[in-house]
Protein backbone atom coordinates (compact mmCIF):
# COMPACT_ATOMS: atom_id res chain seq x y z
CA UNK A 1 0.00 0.00 0.00
CA UNK A 2 1.36 3.40 -0.96
CA UNK A 3 1.27 6.04 1.75
CA UNK A 4 -0.93 9.03 0.99
CA UNK A 5 -0.72 11.06 4.18
CA UNK A 6 1.52 10.71 7.19
CA UNK A 7 1.09 12.84 10.29
CA UNK A 8 3.54 12.80 13.18
CA UNK A 9 3.13 14.63 16.45
CA UNK A 10 1.02 17.43 14.98
CA UNK A 11 -0.02 20.04 17.56
CA UNK A 12 -1.85 23.34 17.55
CA UNK A 13 -2.66 25.64 20.45
CA UNK A 14 -4.96 28.62 20.52
CA UNK A 15 -3.90 30.47 23.64
CA UNK A 16 -4.38 28.07 26.52
CA UNK A 17 -6.64 25.81 24.47
CA UNK A 18 -5.00 22.79 22.87
CA UNK A 19 -6.87 22.09 19.64
CA UNK A 20 -4.63 19.29 18.39
CA UNK A 21 -2.29 17.45 20.72
CA UNK A 22 0.56 15.39 19.27
CA UNK A 23 -1.56 13.64 16.68
CA UNK A 24 -0.23 10.68 14.67
CA UNK A 25 -2.11 9.32 11.67
CA UNK A 26 -1.36 7.52 8.49
CA UNK A 27 -3.62 7.11 5.51
CA UNK A 28 -2.88 4.68 2.72
CA UNK A 29 -3.91 4.56 -0.89
CA UNK A 30 -7.48 3.52 -1.56
CA UNK A 31 -8.69 3.93 1.99
CA UNK A 32 -11.83 5.82 2.82
CA UNK A 33 -10.54 7.20 6.04
CA UNK A 34 -12.95 8.67 8.53
CA UNK A 35 -11.81 11.06 11.23
CA UNK A 36 -14.49 10.75 13.82
CA UNK A 37 -14.83 13.00 16.82
CA UNK A 38 -17.27 15.26 18.60
CA UNK A 39 -17.54 18.92 17.63
CA UNK A 40 -14.45 20.84 18.64
CA UNK A 41 -12.24 17.76 18.80
CA UNK A 42 -9.71 19.19 16.35
CA UNK A 43 -10.75 17.52 13.10
CA UNK A 44 -10.92 20.68 10.99
CA UNK A 45 -7.78 22.11 12.60
CA UNK A 46 -5.91 18.92 11.71
CA UNK A 47 -7.06 18.99 8.10
CA UNK A 48 -6.36 22.74 7.93
CA UNK A 49 -2.79 22.10 9.02
CA UNK A 50 -2.10 19.39 6.44
CA UNK A 51 -3.55 21.72 3.78
CA UNK A 52 -1.24 24.55 4.85
CA UNK A 53 -3.89 27.06 5.84
CA UNK A 54 -3.21 26.69 9.57
CA UNK A 55 0.34 26.74 10.86
CA UNK A 56 1.16 23.86 13.21
CA UNK A 57 2.94 24.63 16.49
CA UNK A 58 4.73 21.30 16.42
CA UNK A 59 4.93 18.12 14.42
CA UNK A 60 5.26 17.23 10.77
CA UNK A 61 3.22 15.79 7.95
CA UNK A 62 3.92 14.63 4.45
CA UNK A 63 1.83 13.83 1.41
CA UNK A 64 2.41 11.02 -1.10
CA UNK A 65 5.58 9.90 0.65
CA UNK A 66 7.09 13.37 0.95
CA UNK A 67 6.73 15.39 -2.26
CA UNK A 68 6.64 19.21 -2.35
CA UNK A 69 3.55 20.23 -0.39
CA UNK A 70 2.30 22.77 -2.89
CA UNK A 71 2.53 20.25 -5.72
CA UNK A 72 0.84 17.74 -3.42
CA UNK A 73 -2.10 20.07 -2.89
CA UNK A 74 -2.66 20.22 -6.63
CA UNK A 75 -3.29 16.45 -6.49
CA UNK A 76 -5.79 16.76 -3.65
CA UNK A 77 -9.37 17.99 -3.80
CA UNK A 78 -10.53 19.69 -0.63
CA UNK A 79 -13.83 20.67 0.90
CA UNK A 80 -13.06 22.12 4.32
CA UNK A 81 -15.91 23.30 6.59
CA UNK A 82 -17.85 25.30 4.02
CA UNK A 83 -18.07 25.49 0.22
CA UNK A 84 -15.93 28.53 -0.63
CA UNK A 85 -16.64 30.18 -3.96
CA UNK A 86 -16.96 33.61 -5.55
CA UNK A 87 -20.67 34.33 -4.98
CA UNK A 88 -21.10 36.57 -8.02
CA UNK A 89 -19.73 33.94 -10.41
CA UNK A 90 -21.66 30.96 -11.72
CA UNK A 91 -20.80 27.29 -11.29
CA UNK A 92 -18.80 27.03 -14.51
CA UNK A 93 -16.80 30.20 -13.86
CA UNK A 94 -16.00 29.07 -10.34
CA UNK A 95 -14.79 25.67 -11.50
CA UNK A 96 -12.64 27.40 -14.14
CA UNK A 97 -10.85 29.28 -11.34
CA UNK A 98 -10.14 25.96 -9.61
CA UNK A 99 -8.92 24.38 -12.85
CA UNK A 100 -6.68 27.38 -13.51
CA UNK A 101 -5.03 27.09 -10.09
CA UNK A 102 -4.54 23.35 -10.52
CA UNK A 103 -3.20 24.00 -14.04
CA UNK A 104 -5.59 21.40 -15.39
CA UNK A 105 -5.55 21.35 -19.15
CA UNK A 106 -9.02 21.10 -20.70
CA UNK A 107 -10.96 20.25 -17.52
CA UNK A 108 -14.21 18.36 -18.04
CA UNK A 109 -16.33 20.97 -16.27
CA UNK A 110 -19.60 19.90 -17.87
CA UNK A 111 -18.96 16.30 -16.91
CA UNK A 112 -18.26 17.24 -13.31
CA UNK A 113 -21.39 19.39 -13.08
CA UNK A 114 -23.33 16.48 -14.54
CA UNK A 115 -21.88 14.16 -11.92
CA UNK A 116 -23.09 16.36 -9.06
CA UNK A 117 -26.38 17.08 -10.81
CA UNK A 118 -25.84 20.81 -11.17
CA UNK A 119 -25.81 20.91 -14.92
CA UNK A 120 -29.12 22.74 -15.19
CA UNK A 121 -28.05 25.50 -12.83
CA UNK A 122 -24.52 25.90 -14.15
CA UNK A 123 -25.14 29.42 -15.47
CA UNK A 124 -26.70 30.75 -12.25
CA UNK A 125 -24.50 32.69 -9.83
CA UNK A 126 -23.23 30.74 -6.84
CA UNK A 127 -25.05 32.95 -4.30
CA UNK A 128 -28.39 31.77 -5.68
CA UNK A 129 -27.60 28.11 -4.94
CA UNK A 130 -29.18 26.22 -2.05
CA UNK A 131 -26.86 24.84 0.62
CA UNK A 132 -27.09 21.36 -0.89
CA UNK A 133 -26.17 22.71 -4.32
CA UNK A 134 -23.25 24.65 -2.86
CA UNK A 135 -22.00 21.51 -1.16
CA UNK A 136 -22.31 19.53 -4.39
CA UNK A 137 -20.45 22.24 -6.33
CA UNK A 138 -17.68 21.97 -3.73
CA UNK A 139 -17.49 18.23 -4.37
CA UNK A 140 -17.31 18.89 -8.12
CA UNK A 141 -14.55 21.45 -7.46
CA UNK A 142 -12.66 18.90 -5.39
CA UNK A 143 -12.80 16.52 -8.35
CA UNK A 144 -11.31 19.00 -10.84
CA UNK A 145 -8.10 17.68 -12.33
CA UNK A 146 -8.81 14.08 -11.34
CA UNK A 147 -7.08 14.20 -7.93
CA UNK A 148 -5.50 11.22 -6.18
CA UNK A 149 -6.91 12.09 -2.80
CA UNK A 150 -9.93 13.97 -1.53
CA UNK A 151 -10.64 15.69 1.76
CA UNK A 152 -14.23 16.12 2.83
CA UNK A 153 -14.79 17.88 6.12
CA UNK A 154 -18.32 17.42 7.48
CA UNK A 155 -19.67 17.09 3.94
CA UNK A 156 -23.29 16.69 5.02
CA UNK A 157 -23.34 19.42 7.64
CA UNK A 158 -26.53 21.45 7.58
CA UNK A 159 -28.17 19.51 4.76
CA UNK A 160 -31.72 18.18 4.75
CA UNK A 161 -32.19 14.38 4.71
CA UNK A 162 -32.42 14.28 0.94
CA UNK A 163 -29.28 16.38 0.59
CA UNK A 164 -27.46 14.13 3.06
CA UNK A 165 -28.41 11.04 1.06
CA UNK A 166 -27.27 12.65 -2.21
CA UNK A 167 -23.92 13.75 -0.85
CA UNK A 168 -23.23 10.38 0.80
CA UNK A 169 -24.14 8.60 -2.39
CA UNK A 170 -21.79 10.88 -4.31
CA UNK A 171 -18.91 10.16 -1.94
CA UNK A 172 -19.49 6.42 -2.15
CA UNK A 173 -19.43 6.67 -5.95
CA UNK A 174 -16.16 8.62 -5.83
CA UNK A 175 -14.69 6.06 -3.44
CA UNK A 176 -15.66 3.32 -5.90
CA UNK A 177 -13.39 4.98 -8.47
CA UNK A 178 -10.52 3.96 -6.19
CA UNK A 179 -9.76 7.45 -4.85
CA UNK A 180 -8.37 7.89 -1.38
CA UNK A 181 -10.82 9.85 0.71
CA UNK A 182 -10.23 11.47 4.07
CA UNK A 183 -13.51 12.43 5.65
CA UNK A 184 -14.03 14.22 8.94
CA UNK A 185 -17.35 13.77 10.64
CA UNK A 186 -19.04 13.85 14.00
CA UNK A 187 -21.76 11.55 12.74
CA UNK A 188 -21.05 7.89 13.43
CA UNK A 189 -23.64 6.60 11.09
CA UNK A 190 -21.96 8.46 8.25
CA UNK A 191 -18.52 7.04 9.00
CA UNK A 192 -19.97 3.56 9.42
CA UNK A 193 -21.76 3.77 6.07
CA UNK A 194 -19.01 5.37 4.01
CA UNK A 195 -15.60 4.65 5.51
CA UNK A 196 -13.28 1.68 5.41
CA UNK A 197 -11.01 3.01 8.16
CA UNK A 198 -11.54 5.28 11.08
CA UNK A 199 -9.56 7.32 13.57
CA UNK A 200 -11.44 8.50 16.61
CA UNK A 201 -10.20 11.71 18.13
CA UNK A 202 -11.18 13.71 21.16
CA UNK A 203 -9.71 16.97 22.45
CA UNK A 204 -7.09 16.76 19.73
CA UNK A 205 -5.85 13.35 20.81
CA UNK A 206 -6.07 10.09 18.95
CA UNK A 207 -8.18 7.63 20.90
CA UNK A 208 -8.44 4.73 18.50
CA UNK A 209 -7.61 3.85 14.95
CA UNK A 210 -8.18 0.89 12.68
CA UNK A 211 -10.55 -0.51 10.10
CA UNK A 212 -14.21 0.19 10.68
CA UNK A 213 -14.83 -3.56 10.77
CA UNK A 214 -12.17 -4.15 13.41
CA UNK A 215 -13.50 -1.44 15.64
CA UNK A 216 -17.02 -2.73 15.28
CA UNK A 217 -16.04 -6.34 15.97
CA UNK A 218 -13.49 -5.87 18.66
CA UNK A 219 -15.73 -5.87 21.67
CA UNK A 220 -18.88 -7.87 21.65
CA UNK A 221 -21.97 -7.53 23.73
CA UNK A 222 -23.95 -10.52 24.89
CA UNK A 223 -27.38 -10.45 26.43
CA UNK A 224 -28.21 -13.09 29.00
CA UNK A 225 -31.01 -13.99 31.38
CA UNK A 226 -31.56 -16.69 33.98
CA UNK A 227 -34.01 -17.59 36.71
CA UNK A 228 -31.60 -16.45 39.37
CA UNK A 229 -30.34 -13.21 37.85
CA UNK A 230 -28.45 -12.09 40.95
CA UNK A 231 -26.39 -15.28 41.10
CA UNK A 232 -25.61 -14.98 37.41
CA UNK A 233 -24.57 -11.38 37.84
CA UNK A 234 -22.31 -12.38 40.69
CA UNK A 235 -20.37 -15.02 38.75
CA UNK A 236 -20.15 -12.86 35.60
CA UNK A 237 -18.68 -9.97 37.53
CA UNK A 238 -16.15 -12.30 39.01
CA UNK A 239 -14.82 -13.48 35.65
CA UNK A 240 -11.74 -11.71 34.31
CA UNK A 241 -12.67 -12.07 30.61
CA UNK A 242 -15.73 -9.96 31.14
CA UNK A 243 -15.16 -6.22 31.20
CA UNK A 244 -18.62 -4.97 32.12
CA UNK A 245 -21.98 -6.22 33.35
CA UNK A 246 -25.08 -4.06 33.17
CA UNK A 247 -28.71 -4.72 33.92
CA UNK A 248 -31.24 -4.28 31.15
CA UNK A 249 -34.59 -3.72 32.83
CA UNK A 250 -35.26 -6.25 35.58
CA UNK A 251 -34.86 -9.55 33.75
CA UNK A 252 -31.75 -9.30 31.52
CA UNK A 253 -28.08 -8.55 31.74
CA UNK A 254 -25.83 -7.06 29.12
CA UNK A 255 -22.16 -8.03 29.25
CA UNK A 256 -19.14 -6.80 27.35
CA UNK A 257 -16.63 -9.41 26.45
CA UNK A 258 -13.26 -9.66 24.78
CA UNK A 259 -13.88 -10.72 21.18
CA UNK A 260 -11.76 -13.90 21.51
CA UNK A 261 -14.60 -15.32 23.55
CA UNK A 262 -18.24 -15.77 22.63
CA UNK A 263 -21.59 -17.13 23.68
CA UNK A 264 -20.16 -20.63 24.20
CA UNK A 265 -17.83 -19.30 26.85
CA UNK A 266 -20.71 -17.67 28.74
CA UNK A 267 -22.83 -20.78 28.43
CA UNK A 268 -20.03 -22.96 29.79
CA UNK A 269 -19.35 -20.53 32.60
CA UNK A 270 -22.98 -20.56 33.71
CA UNK A 271 -23.14 -24.34 33.39
CA UNK A 272 -20.12 -24.75 35.64
CA UNK A 273 -21.94 -22.78 38.31
CA UNK A 274 -25.18 -24.75 37.86
CA UNK A 275 -27.09 -21.85 36.40
CA UNK A 276 -29.39 -22.47 33.46
CA UNK A 277 -29.54 -19.64 31.00
CA UNK A 278 -33.00 -18.74 29.73
CA UNK A 279 -31.70 -16.20 27.26
CA UNK A 280 -28.38 -15.94 25.42
CA UNK A 281 -28.02 -13.54 22.46
CA UNK A 282 -24.92 -12.09 20.86
CA UNK A 283 -25.29 -8.43 19.92
CA UNK A 284 -23.05 -7.01 17.27
CA UNK A 285 -21.58 -3.94 18.86
CA UNK A 286 -22.40 -0.79 16.99
CA UNK A 287 -19.73 1.79 16.37
CA UNK A 288 -21.97 4.25 18.16
CA UNK A 289 -21.72 2.45 21.50
CA UNK A 290 -18.05 2.05 20.85
CA UNK A 291 -17.64 5.70 19.96
CA UNK A 292 -19.40 6.91 23.06
CA UNK A 293 -17.39 4.52 25.18
CA UNK A 294 -14.07 5.47 23.61
CA UNK A 295 -14.64 9.17 23.85
CA UNK A 296 -15.52 8.82 27.52
CA UNK A 297 -12.35 7.00 28.51
CA UNK A 298 -9.28 8.78 27.29
CA UNK A 299 -6.79 5.86 27.16
CA UNK A 300 -5.74 5.19 23.53
CA UNK A 301 -6.67 1.87 22.02
CA UNK A 302 -5.01 0.16 19.07
CA UNK A 303 -7.12 -2.23 17.03
Amino acid sequence: MKPILNIEGLSKHYGSLTAVDGLNLSVEQGQVYGILGPNGSGKTTTLGMVMDIIRPDAGTYNWFGGINVREARKRIGTLLETPNFYPYMNGVQNLKVVAHIKKTKSPDIDGLLEMVDLHQRKAAPFHTYSLGMKQRLAIAAAMVGNPDALIFDEPTNGLDPEGIAEVRDLIVRIAEQGKTIIMASHILDEVEKICSHVAIIKKGQLLATGSVGAIMDSDITIEVAAEDLEALKYILKDDDKISAVQSIGTDKLSISLDDDYGTAYINALAFRHNITLTHLVMKQKKLETEFLEITRNAAPKQY
Binding site: T78, L80, N84
Partner: peptide, 14 residues
Protein backbone atom coordinates in the same frame (compact mmCIF):
# COMPACT_ATOMS: atom_id res chain seq x y z
CA UNK B 1 -14.87 37.27 3.48
CA UNK B 2 -15.67 34.64 0.82
CA UNK B 3 -13.03 32.36 2.39
CA UNK B 4 -11.65 31.94 -1.10
CA UNK B 5 -8.14 32.83 0.06
CA UNK B 6 -7.97 29.62 2.08
CA UNK B 7 -9.65 27.71 -0.74
CA UNK B 8 -7.12 29.03 -3.28
CA UNK B 9 -4.26 27.90 -1.04
CA UNK B 10 -5.82 24.47 -0.46
CA UNK B 11 -6.44 24.13 -4.18
CA UNK B 12 -2.71 24.43 -4.78
CA UNK B 13 -1.35 27.98 -4.61
CA UNK B 14 1.46 28.99 -2.31
Amino acid sequence: SYKTARQNIMTGMS
